[in-house]
């Protein structure tokens, strides 16, 4: 039981950290936004593992449903009409 919990934690911690690193390291802003979505969802999993089920639901509703949609809008409004060039300087 404790081992299974530890394995689950390690698994989702790896997902969280890897996607967070992906947010700051990838070239394209849109890919960053997608990685941010993965990171926020995996943080919600950590909340569930810490008996904060309501907070996990709020995390998904507010962050993934609100913040990430806003960021998506901004990315798509600012993307230059291009084939290879991206906004990132």
């Amino acid at each position: 039981m404790a081992l299974a919990e530890l394995v689950a934690f390690a698994l989702f911690a790896i997902v969280t950290v890897a996607s967070s690193v992906g947010v700051v390291l990838v070239e394209d802003v849109w890919h960053s936004a997608l990685f941010l979505g993965v990171a926020l969802l995996s943080v919600a999993v950590h909340y569930v593992m810490q008996q904060a089920e309501f907070l996990a639901a709020m995390q998904i509703l507010v962050y993934v449903g609100g913040v990430l949609i806003l960021i998506t809008f901004a990315v798509m409004l600012m993307r230059e009409d291009d084939t290879t060039e991206v906004v990132e300087a």
Binding site: G22, V26, E27, D28, T83
Partner: peptide, 10 residues
């Protein structure tokens, strides 16, 4: 257009 994520290192 589908692109795969590329790391930006340097």
């Amino acid at each position: 257009m589908t692109t795969r994520p590329e790391l930006r290192l340097g």
